[in-house]
């Protein structure tokens, strides 16, 4: 008996993709702009978030979901800035997933939030493959990480809307070429918005926070335009 080929052509979506789509719909329905922060461990995600929260909390209602493998340290630091924070301790998981974020959204008062930050687990590999339902991804890299980082981890840089280069105050003490790093990043993703920042000196933070505020405002106007 000969084999017969049956055409199927069905998309394979992991369970995570389905949940992420639900998260995305839920966040969009509530008018919440969400940002998934991705980087290697130690790039400065939490410190950047602390500074960003201080710059924006006067004009936007903020909330944070902070993930770590062990401890709630990042969440505790952010709680000191008087904004709602939900901690996720993954146990051994190397990335946040949509199910964990969905549970956090249940716990947070997302109805009264304009901008939600999701601080992912420090990891430049897996988080870029796990959609959480966010509006956009932001990738961080610090000046101590090597100019070829974007070439080594292209997925994270390609899927991000923006790159925040951190700790630029250290450049005089290093052999790091900012120009080469940014060229490499743009070779992977020519449309990447790039911000050079130092949380130590404050350089570049206003520009970064201003860009975020603009994105939130633009999204809001589009949504209102679509409704009318």
């Amino acid at each position: 008996m000969s084999a017969e080929r049956v055409s199927v052509k069905e998309k394979v979506l992991s369970a995570n993709d389905r949940l992420a789509a639900e998260n995305r719909e839920r966040l969009a329905g509530q008018g919440i702009f969400s940002v998934n922060l991705i980087s290697s461990p130690g790039s400065g995600k939490t410190t950047l978030l602390e500074r960003t929260v201080d710059l924006l909390k006067g004009s936007l209602r903020l909330a944070v979901v902070a993930g770590d493998v062990q401890t709630h340290n990042d969440a505790e630091r952010l709680l000191r800035h008087d904004i709602p924070v939900e901690a996720i301790e993954t146990g051994g998981g190397c990335h946040l997933d949509a199910r964990q974020v969905a549970k956090s959204l249940d716990a947070l008062d997302v109805v009264n939030t304009d901008l939600l930050f999701i601080e992912n687990v420090g990891n430049l590999v897996c988080p870029s493959s796990f959609d959480l339902g966010e509006t956009l991804k932001v990738v961080l890299m610090s000046v101590t990480e090597g100019e070829d980082k974007p070439l080594k981890y292209p997925s994270a840089f390609r899927r991000a809307r923006a790159l925040v280069l951190t700790k630029v105050d250290l450049v005089p003490h290093l052999q790091f070429s900012v120009e080469e790093a940014l060229d490499n990043a743009r070779s992977i993703n020519p449309d990447l918005e790039v911000f050079s920042t130092s949380c130590f000196t404050g350089d570049g933070l206003n520009v970064w926070a201003g860009w975020l505020a603009d994105r939130v405002a633009t999204a809001r106007e589009s949504a209102e335009g679509a409704r009318s």
Partner: peptide, 18 residues
Amino acid sequence: ARGVSGGQGMQLSYLEVE
């Protein structure tokens, strides 16, 4: 190049049965 179209998804293309 700017952006990539396609190459992002996955699909079950066919089965063979007898």
